[in-house]
Write a protein that binds this DNA or RNA. Structure first.
Length: 696
DNA sequence: CTAGGGTTAG
């Protein structure tokens, strides 16, 4: 119990209430409020204003509003009362309410209640976040009439309001006319330019700040660091961080988050992790965790992302994941095809009642379900969304495309067109890929030919690459080559890779060599290029060339990425590498495989030995087809799944042709559907046929 | 009372 042996009066309370508000000492504040009421001081407007501000700071909007309403009823409310209640709504991000209350104050048309500088500084940011620049402009006019614009806080708020409304030229004009500027004015403009993508101008201003010897503060540095990181310029971000350290400025958590995302973009997750470990546990908030989870999900091992997510949930400081965190975790699930964890996170989302208005969480769910092999679940998420954006539609179409359900993808596209949504280059890329994976050559060609005329979307090199892919898969290699020659821009490496893969499927050595030569010119050969070429030579029995490629790889230091497949078990995911014998069930796995191969040989299966040379630098292990990781994963799946349950396998590279054939035979004699995701698409293999129908 | 961090489709 609070015991006071002195009697505070109307001059005392505002001070103590202010302290309670700033320290968020809600219980103390409430006690004082009771004492105020008990001593009848609640008729004193100065005291009431203190109470309103205290409740506002502590987040008790209802209490603040009640006290405020009482002052209004008593007709004692002054500008400060109004400013205090508006500030309370500002704190809750109730932008519309902020504007409403401000209007109400103005409409009372009382000389005493004319908005002052503080009122403007409260209401301008709300205009900014609502994009209401016309309202902001009116306020600017009012500020000028009353000479409030000379107040540097008001000036800064106006600059920021225009910047948030993406009207950087207006913001700049106000900025240049400000007689007194401070570092906040500069920072508002720098971040404004950076956030709308005019990063060069942001950097120009940053340079000017350095020249004019403005005292850069931690906000300035953080803004520039994150600006670089957001544009995937991780190393530049890290350089600015070095400059910051040299300048003697002390980084804070926000700076470190920007720096962490810089390290993530450079795939330096070890350094990022060390830095994260160094951050005081109390400073690790949801954003700090999220940037690490997102870093692992996108630029590192997605398994680490999920582990970190799980340790975040268990952390003693109990940080609650928000929509960003959930998205990052779902990205990790999508990369791993982890349907089980993805479903758990979906359930968590539903339980926690993340508003369905957070479109991007739902978009991530669509992507996760599609990439985990359950595009029907993706559809359900899509159907249940109250609002959708372009990404929602394209994600669903991508899902149908990956699973070879091209017709459904095109249906979605038609509905999307009907909704009048903007159709851009990405949309067409998705449409074309859907056509490609379903072998819809003419439809794809038709869309490609009409995208410019009917939609005003000029085909880029990626669209050409996709058409090469469509024609190539269908074996129309001459047409593909002609299209390359007709390209209005230089063919990119993606184009040549598409042609090269088509040459593998359709066994065209000459064209393959041309494509490989082009890739070499562009200096973008990778292990995939060499593997493809080696397979093509092996298929043509040109063993000398196979050997030549092998030597070439050794000299250039390019190693084939090891093939690796993982299969979703009931409780956990099990990973297999080529020739893997680490698993305790290895003996059973190999026995089963030998048995299966023996049985399907009797059904007509002939091992395609050209694929045995997949692993050109891995002679010992890779030569045995039976040891390919996808076959091991399948055998494990059969051994551990109940009859009728689909076996879900994911492979980091494209599935090997022999494995694909073998699995198709095996699907006739097992009671499981095989759902196989490789780096290119999904294969649903059942009763001796595959959904890819040869288009891979 | 004004400025800064993390997220989704190819």
């Amino acid at each position: 119990m609070l015991r006071l042996d002195w009697n505070p009066d109307g001059y005392t309370y505002p001070y103590v209430l202010k302290a309670c508000g700033e320290l968020r000492f809600l219980l103390c504040g409430e006690s004082f409020h009771s004492l105020i009421v008990a001593s009848g001081l609640d008729s004193n407007v100065f005291v009431c204003n203190g109470v309103i501000a205290m409740y506002g700071k502590c987040g008790l909007l209802g209490h603040a509003r009640q006290v405020f309403d009482e002052t209004v009823v008593r007709e004692t409310a002054d500008v400060i009362s109004w400013n205090s209640i508006v500030a309370a709504y500002v704190q809750k991000d109730e932008d519309k309410k902020v504007l409403e209350l401000f209007d109400l104050m103005v409409s009372l048309n009382s000389f005493e209640l004319r908005p002052d500088a503080v009122s403007l500084v409260n209401v301008l940011p709300a205009c900014g976040s609502l994009g209401a620049w016309k309202r902001g402009k009116q306020l600017q006019g009012y500020a000028i009439r009353r000479c409030l614009h000379e107040d540097v806080f008001v000036g800064n708020a106006i600059v920021d309001m225009y910047a948030k409304c993406k009207r950087l030229d207006d913001a700049n004009k106000v900025f240049e006319l400000m007689e007194v500027k401070d570092v906040v004015s500069w920072n508002a403009l720098v971040t404004g330019y950076s956030q709308i993508g005019r990063f060069d101008e942001a950097l120009g201003l940053f340079e000017r700040m350095r020249e004019e010897q403005i005292d850069l503060n931690v906000v300035t540095w953080s803004a520039v660091i994150s600006g670089y990181a957001q544009r995937d310029l991780g190393y530049e971000a890290l350089n600015i961080f070095k400059d910051m350290r040299l300048s003697g400025a002390e980084p804070n958590v926000i700076t470190l988050v920007s720096v962490l995302s810089g390290y993530a973009k450079c795939k330096e997750m070890k350094i990022a992790q060390a830095m994260f470990d160094d951050i005081d546990r109390r400073d690790r908030n949801v954003v700090t965790w999220t940037v690490m989870i997102g870093g692992y999900a996108q630029h590192g091992d997605a398994n680490d992302a999920l582990e970190l997510f799980s340790s975040m949930l268990k952390d003693q400081y109990s940080v609650i994941p928000n929509a960003y965190t959930i998205s990052c975790a779902l990205v990790a699930c999508a990369r791993l095809s982890s349907l089980r964890i993805g479903r758990q996170i979906h359930a968590y989302v539903l339980r926690q009642g993340y508003e369905p208005t957070i479109i991007f969480v739902a978009n991530c769910l669509i992507d996760m379900y599609s990439k985990s092999g359950d595009v029907d679940a993706a559809r359900l998420v899509f159907d249940n969304m109250s609002q959708r954006n372009t990404v929602s539609w394209t994600s669903l179409m991508t899902g149908y495309g990956m699973h070879g359900r091209g017709e459904e993808a095109l249906q979605v596209f038609n509905v999307m067109r009907g909704e009048g949504l903007p159709i851009d280059g990405v949309t067409f890329l998705v449409v074309l890929y859907a056509c490609s994976h379903s072998g819809m050559v003419d439809k794809g060609m038709n869309y490609f030919n009409h995208m410019k005329g009917d939609f005003g979307v000029v085909p880029g090199a990626e669209h050409y690459a996709c058409m090469i892919d469509i024609l190539g898969r269908a074996g129309r290699l001459d047409e593909a080559m002609k299209l390359i020659e007709r390209m209005p821009m230089e063919p990119t490496s993606v184009v040549w890779v598409a042609l090269l893969s088509a040459c593998r499927v359709h066994k065209n050595v000459d064209l393959a060599e041309q494509a490989a030569a082009k890739l070499s010119e562009l200096e973008s050969e990778n292990d995939g290029t060499y593997t493809l070429l080696s397979n093509i030579y092996a298929n043509a029995k040109r063993w000398k060339d196979v050997a030549r490629i092998r030597t070439l790889m050794k000299h250039s230091g390019i190693r084939k990425r090891p093939g690796c497949s993982w299969v979703q078990g009931k409780k956990e995911t099990v990973t297999f590498f080529v020739g893997d014998r680490c698993h305790p069930m290895s003996e059973k796995i190999y026995d089963l495989l030998e048995n299966l191969i023996h049985r399907i040989k009797a059904m007509g299966y002939v091992p395609e030995t050209s694929f045995a040379l997949h692993d050109v630098d891995d002679e010992e292990k890779g030569d045995l087809l039976i040891e390919h990781s996808e076959k091991l994963a399948l055998a494990y799946g059969i051994l551990t799944s109940a009859p009728g349950v689909p076996i879900r396998i994911t492979k980091n590279l494209r599935v090997c042709g022999d494995c694909h054939t073998a699995m198709t035979y095996i699907s006739k004699i097992i009671e499981h559907e095989i759902i196989l995701r490789d780096s290119s698409r999904f294969h649903h293999i059942k009763n001796g046929s595959c959904s890819c129908r040869g288009f891979w």
